[in-house]
Structures are given as C-alpha cells and as structure tokens.
C-alpha cells in the first residue's frame, strides 16, 4: 500500500475507485455548446486483477500527465501487478490519442481489441497491437475483461468492454453526457450529481460524436442496451465522458430519457450554432 495521496484534479479526489479494482482516471475538458461551457470527461479506467492490470481507453492526449500519475497511483496500491493491456473502445483521439505515450512509458503494455487505424497513427508500435474480437477475453487474475457488443458506436470499429468481477460495463461513448462544473460535479458519480439534467447534458455529445443518434429510432438502440445490461448482469457503468453510474435502477431511466431526447435537435445543419470563441473555464 502506498502513502501517495489521491491527486486533486477536481473537487473530488481522482483517481477514484468506483468498484473493487475498477478505477476512474482522467480529467475534464470544456465543451462549447449553446453558448455555454459544459464539462465532460475523456476518462480512462483501470481494471486491476491479481496478475495483470488493464487500461480501458487512454483519455484525451492533453490529459496524459494526469493519467500517467493516476496509473502510477493505482499501480503503487497494487504492488507486483503490471499494467499489461490497453483496450481502446474506438479510434477517436479523445479515447485513444495517448496510445503512443502509454506504450513508450509502459514497455510491457499491449494494445488489444479492434486495432484498426493505429498502425497508421502509431506505426512504431504496430508490433504491440493485437486484434481481439467481440466474445474474446483477457484474463487478469480473479477477473476477466471481455470484449462485448458495442451497441452505440462512433465508428465501424467500435467495441465495448466488460469486467466479470464487478459486472462493470465500459461503453466508451455509449453513456455520453457532460456535467456541470459550476455545480461541482467534477469527480462525482452520477448519483452524487443531484442537479445533473441528463436530457440537457446528453445533447452536447449528441451534437458532436453522436449526431447519428438524433436521426435513428433510438428506442431500438436503447432497448438493445437494456437487453445487454440484463444479459451481462451489469451493475456498474464506466463511460468515457459521462459520470460513472453506480446505481442503474435509479439513474438509467434518466439516461434513457436523455438518449431519446435528441431526435430532431440537429436537423438544420446551419442552426448548429455560429458561436463566439470561448476558452476552457
């Protein structure tokens, strides 16, 4: 056990253990929407077994110094467990852009999952990338990390992950919503962020990464998410952008509303806002 203190990147200490051996890492980034700055995470998560640890997503490239410290903090608390695997939900840079820095920093680390495009983005590490498909799994010791169906996708090559011990789902952009920095939400799990309006905060990512979800019948996708959560017995959700969900029964109905509320919001391509230049708050 280390005597290092949690790193205070928000009002709540991060990294934060959201389930046994599942750690939430990263920092917020301001996103301009409707003339306001919303905060969203580009989180990474660590799953620590008895023989190996896995990192799910790298976080935003600008967050590497924070993520690196968070990884070191978690590894220090789990002496002798190496960080061996990097699973990436998809090829967008806020999810995978730290790949090069992480592979340089952790020589044992191997990238697993759908590793399309990375041979062009990080060709020097191509020999440390391994395709692993849906239904395949990585043994971490006392727990398994499975690659599961990506219901809500950003790219043809998206994947989601699942930890068998905590029944934690890693859905990448599947539960994508921002939060209110001004209400102190940074570092909170969804159930602690009482003033969070999920219909409002889902819209930020609907405009950016999930434009398509405002044109399809999202009810079909939401039903599939519900089927998947039941099938896998999901108890915890660790999204990349949204706050972690620790009580699905309480929070899912609100997220459901947010996911369905996007229909028609961006039908007029120009209406999507000539906005003034702004800086991260």
């Amino acid at each position: 056990m280390s005597n290092m203190s949690p790193l205070l990147t928000s009002k709540r200490p991060m990294p934060r253990e959201i389930g046994s051996g599942v750690w939430w890492l990263g920092d917020c980034l301001g996103q301009l929407y409707n003339g306001k700055i919303y905060h969203g995470y580009n989180a990474a998560h660590m799953v620590v077994g008895t023989t190996a640890a896995l990192l799910s997503d790298t976080g935003h490239p600008k967050d590497f110094p924070v993520i690196e410290k968070h990884i070191e903090y978690v590894l220090a608390r789990n002496s002798g467990v190496p960080l061996k695997y990097l699973f990436l939900t998809h090829q967008e840079t806020p999810h995978s852009g730290g790949l090069g820095r992480l592979l340089a920093r952790f020589p044992e680390l191997e990238v697993i999952g759908d590793v399309s495009d990375y041979h062009l983005a990080f060709p020097q590490f191509e020999h440390r990338m391994r395709f692993l498909g849906e239904g395949e799994a990585i043994q971490l010791g006392g727990r398994e990390f499975q690659i599961v169906e990506p219901v809500v996708r950003d790219l043809r090559t998206s994947n989601w992950g699942f930890d068998t011990k905590t029944r934690c789902l890693f859905p990448g952009d599947g539960f994508a919503y921002s939060h209110y920095h001004w209400d102190g939400h940074c570092g909170m799990v969804a159930e602690e962020a009482i003033s969070l309006d999920l219909v409002d905060v889902c819209a930020v990512f609907q405009e950016r990464a999930l434009f398509w979800t405002t044109f399809v019948d999202m009810e079909r996708y939401v039903e599939r998410m519900e089927w998947q959560m039941k099938e896998l017995g999901v108890r915890l959700v660790a999204p990349s952008h949204g706050l972690p969900v620790t009580d699905l029964e309480r929070t899912w109905p609100e997220i459901r509303k947010g996911l369905l509320a996007g229909a028609g919001k961006f039908d007029d391509m120009v209406k999507a806002a000539p906005e003034v230049e702004a800086r991260t708050s």
């Binding site: 980034l29 301009l32 935003h60 490239p61 600008k62 590497f64 110094p65 840079t93 852009g97 090069g100 820095r101 340089a104 983005a121 020097q124 120009v270 999507a272 806002a273 000539p274 906005e275 003034v276 230049e277 702004a278």
Partner: peptide
C-alpha cells in the same frame, strides 16, 4: 489541445498558433 499526439513529453511548449473556432 487536440493536435498533440506525439510520444515525446506532452509538457513541452506547444507552437504559438492561434486557436479559432469553426462553428455554423
């Protein structure tokens, strides 16, 4: 912030480039 993917230290100084927002 979205351009810096290079492996060398991210703490180094970024080039002096003006960020402009492309919206609408």
């Amino acid at each position: 912030l979205w351009l810096d993917l290079e492996i060398s230290s991210p703490n180094r100084k970024l080039p002096d480039i003006d960020s402009k927002v492309l919206r609408g």
